[in-house]
Structure formats: C-alpha cells, structure tokens
Simulated scan of single mutants.
Amino acid sequence: MLNDLQQRKLAHLFTLLDVDDDGTVDKMDYTASADRLVNAFGFAPGSTESRRVRERYARLWDEVTLPMDADGDERVELKEFTAGFYRFVTQPGTGYHTHIAPVADAFYDLMDTDGDGRITRIEYLRMAESAFRLSEANAAVAFERLDLDGNGSLSRQELHVANEQFFRSPDPESRGNWLFGPLPALG
C-alpha cells in the first residue's frame, strides 16, 4: 500500500503529465511531452535523439501506463495511475529498472547537450520546464536538492537515484522527492 507521501508524489506527476489538463493521461499527453522536450533541446523531428525520446515515451505508455487503464477507454485517471504505479514500479523488483530507467536514460542523453557526461543546472532547467512544465524557480530548487555531491551538476547515477527514490521511497527526507519540483501542499 502506498503511504500519503507516495500518493502525493504520484498525483503531482499525474498533474504534470496531463498536458491538456483534462483530468486524464492518454497517449497524446505522452506524445506532447516528448515533443516539447525534443523541441526545447533543438533536435530535428527525425533526428536520432528525437526518435529515441519518442520511442521511450511510447514504450512507457504502451507497457506501463496503458495497462493501468482499468476501464479500457485508453485514458488513465488518477486512481488508475496511482494503482498502476504501485503495481508496476513502486513495489520491490525490477519495475523501476524495466520501465522508468530507460526513459530516464533517454532524458539524460538528451539533456547532456555538450556531451560531457554531466547535466548542468541550465540543462536540467530546460528539461524540467519543457517536459514537465515546472517554473524556473521550482526547477532550480529541484536541481539543488538533487545535486547530491554539491558539485553543480548531476551525474547519470544521481538522476537514477533521484528517479528511483521518487517512484519507490516512502521516506519524506529522500532527495528524490524533489525530482519534479516541490510537491503541492495538501489540499
């Protein structure tokens, strides 16, 4: 069972993924997120980077999110989304490594525009603002929280730790809770 924090994190992510703000997540939302991301980094629609991000988003939709659709309408509501992430990702096992890690790797490769193996603050902010509609201020706070060694950049390992903590950790002190910016206050 997910604790309150885990439910809040998934509700927050759901809101960020619901690009058209219609209260559901569907394949169009994933496609729009992928398109915004590759456009923000200036990649041509047919480029290798663009295809890779779109393929990872499509795989995430097909293999993780669509199977969450309990009523078969190809639209996932928050309740279905939360239950599905609990079933596919949050539980111990390989769910994170099978479904989320490949998308995180595609994000990492796309963000690392200078190819130096590090994600700078500017690169992270560009991703967070375009793919997840975070404000610059919220993206900056998230970056600071995720920079575990305080060196001003993020490594692939730091991003994987943050991703896994966001999706799996019930601990309110986990830095990964900040992956998608600050969580909204309880209603």
Rank of each mutant, 00 (worst) to 15 (best):
T90L: 01
D114F: 00
M111N: 08
S130G: 00
F107E: 06
D112V: 08
I119W: 11
L134I: 04
E129S: 08
D109P: 01
D112W: 02
D114R: 13
Y86W: 04
H97P: 00
A128Y: 08
R133S: 09
V89R: 04
A131R: 05
A131G: 05
T113S: 15
I119Y: 12
G84N: 04
T113V: 12
D112N: 15
A106Q: 11
R126W: 14
S135T: 13
G84D: 04
M111R: 11
T120L: 07
Y86G: 05
Y96F: 15
A106S: 15
A131F: 03
T120Q: 08
T94N: 15
A131H: 04
M111C: 13
M127H: 13
D105Y: 12
P102F: 14
T94M: 10
V103F: 14
R121F: 11
H97C: 01
D116E: 14
V103S: 05
S130P: 06
E123G: 02
A104S: 12
G115K: 11
G117K: 07
V103W: 12
G117V: 10
R118C: 10
I100H: 04
L125V: 15
Y108F: 15
F88Q: 06
R87W: 01
P92K: 04
R133D: 08
I122A: 14
D109K: 12
A128N: 01
R126P: 00
I119D: 11
I100D: 05
A106W: 13
A131C: 05
G93R: 14
I119F: 14
Y124V: 03
I100V: 15
I122P: 00
G95W: 07
G84M: 04
T90C: 07
Q91M: 02
G117A: 09
F107G: 03
M111G: 09
L125E: 13
M127Q: 11
F107I: 07
Y108L: 09
R121Y: 05
Y96V: 12
G115Q: 10
